[in-house]
Design a protein around this nucleic acid. Structure first.
Lengths: 236, 236
DNA sequence: CAAGAAGTGGAGGACCTATTCCGGTTAGTG
DNA sequence: CACTAACCGGAATAGGTCCTCCACTTCTTG
C-alpha cells in the first residue's frame, strides 16, 4: 500500500501547511476536535480552501495536529515502565494521562479517534515531507506499553488482580466527563476522582467486579464516538 | 413572588401542553436535553410555535419533562436512608443514580441543570393547573437526603471519613462521560467504573486525597454546563 | 349561535458551520 | 524574463437549528 510517494509541495504551500497544523494544535487544544475549521484557517492566516485542499478530511488534520501529544502519551507509558516501583509507575501513568486530557481538550478525542490498528491515514508526513511513524502506529505502541505497565504491577501484587487494561480507556471517558463539566470552575476536580480510582486499584480494596468490557466492543465504542464528533457540528 | 396565579388554559391547549411534555420526555431521554425542539413538536403532533408559546425557555420544558425522573432520584435517596445497612444504602443510592443516568440521557443534564437553590422557574404546573413542588425544590430536598445518607455511612464507619458529598456530583460527571461514549456498544460499561468507585469509598482503601471541590464552585460549574448545553445547538 | 379571545401551524429571518468553485496570484523553470 | 502548473482566498452553496411573526382556526361564553 502507498507505493507512490506524493510529490513534494511548493515551499510556500509547505509553509502554509505547517502554519495550519500549528493553528490546529492551538484551536483543538482549547476547543476540542470539533472546533470550527474556519477558526483554524483564520488563526493560520490562510483561506479555508487552503485548509481543505491540504486536509480533505478533518481526521487527517487531527491526526497530525496531535502527533506531539501522542508522543507524550507514548513517553508517559515508557516512563512508567522505567520506574523501579511498579505501583508508582502505574500511578504516574494514570495521572499523566489524565493531566494530558486536562491540558489539552483534544487529547481525549485523539486517544479515542485513533484506536489500536486501523488501515488508513496511518502515514503522517513530517515538515520535511519524509514519511514517519503514523499516529496509529504510535498509539498502538503506546497501548502495548500500557499493558506491560499493568501486567508488571499485577504480578508484583501491587495492583488488584482483576484489573483489566480496558479499565483505563474507560477511565479516560470518565475523566473526560469530569473535565468537560468542571474545566472552567474547578480545573483540578479530576485529580480527586483519579485519586479515588487509584485507591480502588489496590488489592486491599478489591471486591468482585462486573466483567471488564470486551476489547472489540470497546474499540467499536471509541470509533463510534470519534465518528460522532466528526459528524457533529455540521448540524446538531 | 408570583402572587398572581396564571389563568387556566383552554382545554385543547392544556391537552397539547401535556402531549408536548410527553414527547419531550421521550426525545430528551433518547437524545439528551439539547435535542432539536422541532422534533419534540413533531412527535407531539403540534407546530413549533405552540411549543415555544407554552415553553418560551428550553429550561422550562426540561424541568417539567424530567419531573418524574427527579421524583425517582428523590425516592432513591429516601430509600437509601431507609436501608438498615448504611453501606448497602449508600451503594444502592450510587448505583441507582448511575442507572438513572444510563436509562435516561437527559437525567444527567437535569441533575446538573437545576442545582441547589435558584429563584426562577421553580413552580411547575401540574396537568390540573395546581401548583406543585417545583423541580428545584425537589432536587434540593433530594440532595439533603443524599447528604444524610453519606453522613450516616461515615459515622457508622463503613464509608471513608474523607468522603465528601461533593464527590457524588463529580461521579455523576464521570459516569456521564462513560455512558456518553459507550452507550451503543457497551451499555453496561459504567457498572464497572461505579463498582471501582465504590471500592475506593471503603475506609480500608483510603489514602490521602486531593481536597474536595468547593461547593460553590461546583455549583457554578454545573450551572455553566447547563448554560453551555442550552446555548449549544444554535451553532456548534 | 355569534362574536371574540385564545390558540394554532408553518413560513421566514438570523445564525452557524461544512464544503466546493473559480478567477486571480505566485513559485519554479528554461 | 516569460510561461505554466501549482496555489490561494473568498464568495457561494448547502445544510441544520433557533425563534418570531402573522394570517387562520377553534374553543368558550353570553
Amino acid at each position: 500500500m502507498d507505493v507512490t510517494t506524493p510529490p513534494p509541495l511548493r515551499v510556500d504551500a509547505e509553509a502554509n501547511r505547517a502554519r495550519i497544523v500549528q493553528a490546529a494544535q492551538a484551536v483543538f487544544a482549547e476547543q476540542g476536535v470539533s472546533a470550527p475549521l474556519t477558526e483554524v484557517a483564520a488563526r493560520a492566516g490562510v483561506g479555508i480552501a487552503t485548509l481543505y485542499r491540504r486536509f480533505p478530511d478533518r481526521a487527517d488534520l487531527v491526526a497530525e495536529a496531535f502527533d506531539d501529544a501522542l508522543r507524550q502519551y507514548e513517553a508517559s507509558a515508557d516512563l512508567a515502565l522505567t520506574d523501579d516501583d511498579p505501583w508508582a509507575g502505574f500511578v504516574g501513568l494514570v495521572e499523566r494521562m489524565a493531566a494530558l486530557q486536562a491540558e489539552n481538550r483534544g487529547f481525549t478525542h485523539l486517544i479515542q479517534s485513533v484506536p489500536l490498528g486501523r488501515g488508513s491515514s496511518t502515514a503522517a508526513r513530517g515538515s520535511s515531507g519524509r514519511r514517519e511513524l503514523g499516529s496509529s502506529g504510535r498509539r498502538e505502541r503506546g497501548y502495548r506499553t500500557v499493558v506491560e505497565v499493568i501486567d508488571r504491577a499485577k504480578s508484583s501484587g501491587v495492583l488488584r488482580a482483576d484489573f483489566s487494561p480496558e479499565d483505563l480507556p474507560v477511565l479516560t471517558f470518565a475523566v473526560a466527563g469530569v473535565i468537560e463539566t468542571t474545566r472552567d470552575d474547578l480545573p483540578e476536580a479530576w485529580r480527586r476522582h483519579v485519586a479515588l480510582f487509584l485507591d480502588a486499584c489496590r488489592p486491599i480494596a478489591a471486591t468482585p467486579l462486573p466483567p471488564a468490557p470486551e476489547p472489540i466492543a470497546l474499540q467499536r465504542a471509541m470509533l463510534r464516538a470519534a465518528r460522532r464528533r466528526q459528524t457533529r457540528g455540521q448540524s446538531g
